[in-house]
Design a protein around this nucleic acid. Structure first.
Lengths: 216, 216
DNA sequence: ACCTGAACACCGTTCAAGT
DNA sequence: ACCTGAACACCGTTCAAGT
């Protein structure tokens, strides 16, 4: 295997198939991150069955791999459809898909937030959001502020996803109200999901109440 | 200098003053981070005028230094005073002081978010917030969710502070609404500050509107 | 064109040896 | 008790040499 026969000028040429390409490198890199929570070139090369130096014939280095993972992650986001439905619903579904994409690879989040998270298709999405907010009636000089607010909330919620479960319980007895609240709430991922939805609704409700004119 | 005279049993003993201690190590580490945006043991040792290995007689290693910087940062936070003023005002001022503390060392934020950010005095603050929210009338099983929401927003806003200015302008012509919004808004740090306040108000307004009974 | 091993500079950390 | 230089294991990256 790992060979292909190619007919050329009447000769049958046995040629070694390329061992590596960018897509398989990215797949293996994501596997490293998902399974071990970090990305080293040695681990990556081992998974690929190649040497670490081989990788450099296809990508410029580790930073570019992380960048490409960001692009790939973010390329699958559904851009808000810009239809005639409620602007808040459209913003909410965009926020959900953004967070959902991050949620599928929580170990990737710390690597992505080494650089800025806001690039590529995320920018396209926020362009639509800016459009929606302007059309909805927000003052021109406020639109960018609301976009920043939504971005902050989405990133913070993503970090919340990547954080371990027990962080809130570390008070050791001197945080009684927090511990009681913790016991009464859903646990782990279910809490992160419920909190995200609750906060998103509150944020959009607060935005709506600040609209100069009422919604159509 | 760097010497002290100590009288002991009638003899005057010239003794070298301890070259290093935890506080000076933390000061130098913060200087590394503020000035270069990263923390290496070599850079740290150079600033201290000592060898890298000396540092290990006072701290267990680099991770503990970062942990101690987190504790020091967060130790200066004003815990909400639990007075009879409006719960929203108290939560808002706590959120502001949290973000303000992070804003003073933006380069520290990525290092802190390698681990979870929520520990120490931050937990104490959220214990007060949980108390406030319960007293304000939020259902017991929602209190922890709102705490998570506030935490997400504070962390996201902190990441927004650490991010460079030009991220939103990278659309290159195919994000016209975003670019128009960007031009109409305040720039840089002023935008981050205005966005944080606007979003915080909206979030608290949305929370208020979800209170089962009206505020006292 | 693609892959490799060896080498390099740079990390954090350890430790035997000094005072 | 505190500090040091040398050494170590482990990073990402480069490059001359192979096919």
């Amino acid at each position: 295997m790992a060979r292909e026969a190619r007919e050329e000028e009447g000769y049958v040429v046995q040629r070694r198939r390329r061992l590596l390409d960018v897509e398989t490198i990215l797949d293996a890199a994501l596997a490293c991150i998902d399974e071990r929570g970090r990305l080293t070139m040695a681990d990556l090369a081992a998974r690929l069955g190649a040497s670490a130096s081989s990788v450099y014939h296809h990508v410029s280095g580790r930073p570019e791999i992380v960048e490409m993972l960001r692009e790939r992650l973010v390329a699958h986001l559904e851009i808000p459809p810009l239809d005639r439905s409620d602007w808040g619903d459209q913003v909410a579904s965009w926020m959900r898909s953004y967070r959902q994409a991050l949620a599928e690879h929580p170990n990737l989040i710390p690597l992505l937030s080494e650089q800025t998270m806001t690039a590529g298709s995320v920018l396209l999405g926020y362009d639509r959001v800016a459009d929606l907010l302007g059309t909805a009636g927000f003052p021109e000089d406020q639109v960018m502020l609301w976009v920043s607010v939504l971005d902050s909330y989405a990133l913070g919620a993503a970090l919340d996803l990547a954080a371990p479960d027990e962080v809130w319980g570390a008070g050791g007895g001197d945080t009684p109200a927090l511990e009681a609240a913790l016991r009464a709430a859903p646990q782990g991922r279910a809490r992160a999901d419920a909190a995200f939805e609750l906060g998103l609704e509150a944020l959009l409700a607060g935005m709506r109440s600040r609209l100069p004119v009422g919604p159509v």
